[in-house]
Amino acid sequence: MSYTDAEIAALAEGLLDRSLPKDQWTHAAHLTATLRLVRLRDANLERDLPWVIRTYNVAVGGQNTETAGYHETITQAYLAAIRAFEAALPPGTSDAEAVALLLATPLGDKNWPLTHWSRERLFSVEARRWWVDPDLKPLAHPPAPRNDL
Results as ranks from 00 to 15, higher is better:
V132Q: 06
P21R: 07
E97D: 13
G62P: 08
A81I: 06
T26R: 07
R47A: 13
Y3R: 13
A88S: 14
L15M: 15
R41A: 15
A81D: 10
E72F: 00
L16D: 12
A87N: 14
D133E: 14
G108K: 09
L35T: 11
A77H: 06
L101P: 00
I74A: 03
D48T: 09
P143C: 05
A87M: 09
T93R: 09
L37K: 11
R36Q: 13
M1F: 02
H30P: 03
N147G: 15
R128D: 01
L139P: 07
Y70G: 00
A29E: 02
L40C: 10
A80V: 09
I82C: 06
A68D: 12
R129V: 00
P142A: 01
H71W: 01
T73D: 01
A77T: 10
A84S: 15
D23S: 09
L89R: 14
K110Q: 13
S124N: 04
E66W: 02
L37A: 04
L45N: 11
F123C: 08
Y3D: 06
A33I: 03
A96G: 08
R54G: 09
R128L: 01
A6Q: 15
R129I: 01
L101H: 12
A100T: 14
R47E: 15
P50D: 04
L102C: 11
Y56E: 07
A144V: 11
L149G: 12
W25V: 02
R121D: 03
R47K: 14
S2T: 13
A140V: 03
A6T: 15
L20C: 03
V125D: 06
G62M: 04
P21C: 03
D48A: 11
K137L: 03
E120I: 04
V52P: 00
P113Q: 13
R119P: 00
H71M: 05
P138N: 07
P91E: 10
W112R: 12
P90S: 13
P21Y: 01
